[in-house]
């Protein structure tokens, strides 16, 4: 990889650079790849009939999920304190399962605490089966297709507009909890809004659609699918753009900046001050006056 990179990650507004041809080629490859990605699971699904998938999902569900969510996904209230052990899954849809299990949040280590992102327990095939089973319990949001959250099919100008609009929607609806850079934030009583940088766009889309844990839902009647797509495009554009100004310091805003001012700035200056005023080496010899 070249260290110095001209016009990295940006879509030129005015110019056609020599690399435009290369970009078209790349775009073609990307499109082919994404088309393949979009169609290949469908082919796999054909191989295994839907019923068989649901049955497989039910088997996994009974072993791994029913303790909290009930044998038929109806949810269980704890016998001890009457609190919900696991909510009903009827009508949450495949998208919720794909998000919760696919990001490792489910199965939960301990009921009651906020589900954390961790390496998924189930393989993608198993997640698919689980999702199919839960979707069969009641109508709910389906797993989005890549075309739902990708702006690859738009023209360059449309893409730019989508990113700008997405930024405004993001700042209006999302930054309050997830912070201006998607670094996450604190919620009442130990809850937190997780970091959403570096998260697969599919999961962001599913999270908006289903409102995992304490998050509000942004159903299609609330934020249209295009608006969700634009938010994801904006987040993607933030990840693609160079960090113009240097290290982001965690993207936490003024608190981390203050910390760096004290530790790095004052620390370094004081270290220099100590050196300036320190006594230099002394010699045991005395000077021979010429």
């Amino acid at each position: 990889m070249r260290l110095l990179n001209r016009s990295a990650g940006r879509l030129s507004r005015y110019r056609r650079r020599p690399i435009a041809g290369l970009a078209v080629l790349m775009f073609g490859l990307l499109l082919t790849g994404s088309l393949y990605a979009a169609f290949s699971p469908a082919q796999a699904g054909q191989a295994e009939s839907d019923e068989a998938l649901v049955a497989k999902g039910r088997d996994i569900f009974i072993v791994g999920c029913s303790t909290c969510h009930g044998l038929n996904g109806e949810g269980i209230n704890s016998s001890r304190d009457g609190k919900i052990l696991g909510p009903s899954l009827i009508g949450v849809g495949a998208a919720a399962v794909d998000f919760q299990v696919g990001t490792g949040r489910m199965p939960l280590a301990q009921p009651g605490s906020q589900a954390q992102r961790k390496p998924p327990v189930y393989t993608p095939d198993e997640v698919e089966a689980l999702a199919a089973y839960v979707a069969s319990l009641g109508v709910g949001p389906a797993i989005p297709d890549e075309s739902d959250y990708s702006i690859a099919g738009l023209s360059e100008q449309e893409r730019e507009e989508a990113i700008v609009r997405g930024g405004q929607i993001f700042l209006t609806n999302c930054t309050a909890c997830h912070n201006f850079e998607g670094s996450g934030g604190a919620m009442p009583r130990g809850g937190y809004a997780p970091k959403i940088r570096g998260v697969d766009p599919k999961y962001i889309y599913e999270a908006m659609l289903t409102g995992p844990q304490a998050m509000d839902t942004f159903s299609n009647g609330n934020l249209s699918p295009e608006e969700k797509r634009d938010v994801i495009a904006y987040l993607q554009s933030l990840e693609d753009q160079p960090s113009y100004s240097g290290f982001g310091l965690g993207g936490m805003g003024p608190v981390s900046e203050g910390l760096f001012a004290w530790l790095f700035g004052i620390g370094l200056c004081v270290a220099f001050a100590v050196w300036i005023a320190a006594h230099t080496t002394r010699s045991s010899k005395s000077k021979v006056e010429a």
């Binding site: 912070n179 670094s183 604190a186 805003g253 003024p254 001012a261």
Partner: peptide, 12 residues
């Protein structure tokens, strides 16, 4: 009408 998590002033 907009706000961001981590709304803090500068350290001082």
């Amino acid at each position: 009408s907009k706000v961001t998590a981590g709304s803090q002033p500068d350290w001082y």
